Simulated assay, not measured.
Amino acid sequence: MKKIAILSLLFFSGIIMAQDVEVVKGDFKFLSSQKEVNIEFVYSNLKLMKEEMTEEQYVKERSAELNEKSKGKGDIWKKKWEGSKELIWNLKFLELANVVLSKDKKDLVFQEGATNAKYTLIVDVVWIYPGWDAGVMKQAAKVSTVLKFVETANRNNVVLQLNTDKAPGDQWGNNYSNESRIGEGFAKTAKTMSKMILKKAY
Rank of each mutant, 00 (worst) to 15 (best):
L87Y: 10
D133G: 07
T192V: 13
V158F: 02
V126I: 15
M193C: 04
E151M: 10
D124P: 07
E151H: 13
Q171E: 13
E112R: 08
Y129K: 15
K188F: 14
V109E: 15
N154V: 06
D165Q: 14
T120D: 03
V150R: 08
K106I: 08
E95Y: 08
N175H: 03
A190Q: 07
D170V: 08
I88Y: 13
G173C: 06
L162W: 10
Q139W: 11
T189C: 09
V126A: 01
A117H: 14
D133N: 13
A117S: 15
F110K: 13
N163F: 09
V143L: 14
L162A: 08
A153C: 02
L94D: 00
E95G: 06
D165T: 14
E151Y: 14
T164Q: 13
G83H: 03
I182V: 13
K148L: 10
K105I: 03
N116M: 02
D165C: 05
V123W: 01
D104A: 14
E82Y: 01
Y119D: 06
E179I: 03
Y129W: 11
Q161W: 07
A97T: 02
E95L: 09
N98R: 09
E82P: 05
K80S: 05
K106T: 04
V143I: 13
Q161P: 01
S102T: 11
K78H: 05
E151N: 11
Q171N: 10
W172Q: 05
A167S: 13
G173E: 05
T189N: 12
